[in-house]
Amino acid sequence: MNYTLKIWRQKSAKERGEMVSYQVSGISAEISFFEMLDILNQQLIAEGGDPVAFDHDCREGICGTCSLYINGRPHGPVRGVTTCQLHMRSFSDGEVIHIEPWRSKAFPVVRDLVVDRSALDLIIQAGGYVSVNSGGIPDANTIPVPKHHADTAFDAAACIGCGACVAACPNAAAMLFVSAKVSHLSLLPQGKAEAVKRVQKMVARMDELGFGNCSNTYACEVECPKLISVTNIARMNREFLSAKLFSEKEKIVRDSI
């Protein structure tokens, strides 16, 4: 199969970018989207050109490294998959495929299709962890966890932090990502102890980094490769509100010595 690719090319963060047209031909319908881009890059290298930079790592849909905004949709046209799990059979022969980097003030373009997503790591650093070592695997039922909490926490923990939610959101909001992290920790006993502080710190960091406000269009849920639900956002709103309204003030311990 043959495709016309229109790819965003930008040499560095400071230089201006533009869409550049490329042709690839003789592509098998069964190869992956990245294999098709690999073929394009080999072609460019053979011609003495500059290969297209794009993020990828595991290529099996679990690491969250790949991105790409393909024909107006993060991770392309198939629901519930990452770009690396996308195959050329999802595109028709002769199709024009637009490939752009993810756009957000918090995700500056590094080069071509590569964006800097460390803003998501900064949100995690603000509170997306359990402060104390919670030890090894406890014996079954020594810490009671209701089954549905375990299931909901697990569903939220499926978030791979790729940032598709931000890319899809008309407001470039990171609410789905942050709420997934908040939920998976606060639903389990090890994470619950710090839940009140965590949600406030993570939301504050998210706001600082320049992500937009959620306007409940739920585009994030549609594009999430791990199908994270927007009920997590409601849970985060609920936790945030109750933390702001009802959490007790911390005692200030004065140094007596």
Binding site: G72, R73, E100, R103, K105, N213
Partner: peptide, 20 residues
């Protein structure tokens, strides 16, 4: 206004995500 500022460089292809 804040939402607009959070994506200073927009997409070439308008978003095609199916939303309500």
């Amino acid at each position: 206004r804040q939402n607009r500022a959070s994506r200073p460089v927009g997409y070439v292809v308008a978003n095609r995500t199916e939303t309500s």
